[in-house]
């Protein structure tokens, strides 16, 4: 039973958790950036980033390599100083008031950052001490990530990359912080453990924790995040709920009519005819599907193929041009990606 003093509990007790932050009630915004910019001489690594991450959410931060994700995260952590603009965590400026900003924070360090001469257990104890909070979630994390006690007794030098990643995750989460900043958290984890980890993220969100994560695994982001920000070339190009982004995505529908395709089809709002082969018509549409469905309801349709919206398609729409490059397509054959990539800012920017 929890009796107020949460710190008397044994580590790993799943029934009791410390409150989020010391203030009464969590603040509305966990992470906020205003015009955050980082330049290295003439090179702009990040330009004018405006973000507001709601407390108690899982927030995805997406972009290909070099888009500015890691720069943004390093700015949030106070590892580098902004050229202009500001970043705040729970209302505290990350540079001027960094200690307060990091008081209830968990950060996933790169797995190579650990001291190789320490055992895993000693490493976790040391980091728990530096965090100033007891490792109340450690046992659950070790179980979820399948990092055994035997492994913890070994020195880091003998760990595989996956084991180091698990240790890094445990170190970031073990003190049950109000905010977690994670850069590629499931890199190196096998799919089964990855699913368990996602379950843990959802559980933490249910208890009011905020998770800000970058990931290359779009399926994972789609499964776990409510909102995402998409960056390209150091600039924010979209910030939306996952469902909202998918709704905005230009999608294709393949309709096979019983008879000839009706010529009025071209007049349906937000619908473009991409190709026509006899009775089969390939259409592209944006936004609300209902006008098209209402139109089709008035005609005899033999078949209709509508692929479910996927975050990957949205992502490829943003990056299709960059990804294809001179070497040709790389897993981006979709016509819709090609089409939408022509004016993604107009389509997606809010």
């Amino acid at each position: 039973m929890c009796k107020g003093d949460i710190w008397l509990l044994a580590p790993g007790n799943l029934g009791c958790y410390p409150p989020v932050m010391g203030n009464p009630g969590p603040p509305e915004i966990a992470v906020e950036t205003t015009g955050l910019t980082k330049r290295y001489g003439e090179i702009a690594a990040l330009t004018d980033l405006h973000l507001a991450v709601p407390a108690g959410s899982i927030y995805g931060f997406l972009g290909p390599n070099g888009a500015g994700k890691t720069t943004a995260i390093r700015l949030l952590m106070g590892f580098i100083r902004a050229s202009s603009g500001s970043a705040r965590i729970f209302g505290h400026d990350v540079w001027a008031d960094g200690v307060a900003a990091r008081r209830d924070l968990g950060f996933l360090v790169t797995p190579d950052a650990f001291y190789p001469d320490m055992t895993g257990a000693a490493q976790l104890d040391y980091l728990a001490h530096l965090s100033g909070k007891p490792p109340v979630l450690r046992d659950r994390l070790l179980e979820t990530l399948e990092l055994g006690k035997d492994a913890l007794r070994r020195r880091l030098g003998s760990y595989s990359k996956g084991m180091r990643q698990k240790l890094a995750l445990t170190a970031a989460f073990q003190h049950d912080p109000a905010l977690l900043i994670l850069d590629e958290p499931t890199d190196g984890l096998d799919p089964l453990i990855q699913r368990g980890f996602e379950e843990l993220l959802r559980d933490l969100r249910e208890r009011g924790r905020t998770i800000f994560m970058s990931s290359h695994d779009l399926a994972e982001v789609e499964r776990t995040c409510e909102r995402v920000a998409v960056v390209r070339g150091g600039r924010l190009v979209a910030e939306e709920t996952v469902e909202g982004l998918k709704r905005l995505q230009r999608r294709t529908v393949e309709v096979t009519f019983v008879g000839e395709a009706p010529p009025e089809l071209a007049l349906v709002p937000r619908v473009t005819i991409v190709s026509r082969e006899g009775r089969r018509v390939r259409l592209a549409f944006e936004g609300d599907l209902n006008p098209l469905l209402r139109f089709l309801a008035g005609h005899d349709v033999a078949d209709l193929v509508l692929a479910p919206p996927r975050l990957e398609d949205v992502f490829m729409a943003f990056y299709g041009e960059d990804e294809r490059g001179p070497g040709g397509a790389r897993g981006a054959p979709a016509v819709e990606a090609q089409d939408a990539a022509t004016e993604p800012d107009l389509v997606m920017r809010r």
Binding site: A100, R102, D112, F114, Y115
Partner: peptide
Amino acid sequence: ERGTIQLALSRPISR
């Protein structure tokens, strides 16, 4: 160089 300093600087510890 190794990134080890992030272990401390990602905690509520000042530079």
